[in-house]
Design a protein around this nucleic acid. Sequence first.
DNA 1: CCAGGTCATAGCATTGATGCTATGGACGTA
DNA 2: TACGTCCATAGCATCAATGCTATGACCTGG
Lengths: 98, 98
Amino acid sequence: MSGMDYRELRSRRMAEPGAAEAYEATRIAYELGKTVRAMREERGWSQSDLAARAAMTQSAVARFEAGGTVPTIPVLERLARALDADVEVRLTPRVPAA
Amino acid sequence: MSGMDYRELRSRRMAEPGAAEAYEATRIAYELGKTVRAMREERGWSQSDLAARAAMTQSAVARFEAGGTVPTIPVLERLARALDADVEVRLTPRVPAA
DNA sequence: CCAGGTCATAGCATTGATGCTATGGACGTA
DNA sequence: TACGTCCATAGCATCAATGCTATGACCTGG
């Protein structure tokens, strides 16, 4: 990766108005990016390879893997399909902290 | 609800170009809408109540619950927070069909 | 050094979700 | 009937993710 890490991404978003809500979304984007990169590398694919299979461009894959944006569900679906995976989106009741 | 059900929503999307990819996204939107509605009713809240707590309008809640659009992750986060829940988004390796 | 592959990023157009206001129907109740 | 609440939906403005092209840095092999 470049010089971009989670702390940086977070601080960028936290600077915006209404930021607290976006915090978790940013974290999710970051995690998903890491996951997809791992799955891609596991298969020995370049970003271009994955892009072709997911009907998108290399730049879009790079942006996504870097956590540059909070992905939309349709895009996640396309990537998942290319990686032979499924997308799960769930709302789970929060467990009181002990 | 109105006269809108899953079959209808699906056929609408399936009519568009590049539709096969959006199929799953539509299904996810539908499921999430049902889930949120259930959680909301469980608490005895009106759509307006939930909207206020999630910093959105009643119309946005209605649209979401009806599965009218594929929600974005930030919006899911706001709703989840209001409902004291967590959002989970995951890519899981697909299991071969037996 | 040069060529080719990989990845990050910029800039801009397009698209779709969301924010918002307003309205109408359904339902219950005074 | 009149009023109030709840929900669905229309119409439009705005915003953010995506699509796309192009470019530059980095590395490795020739």
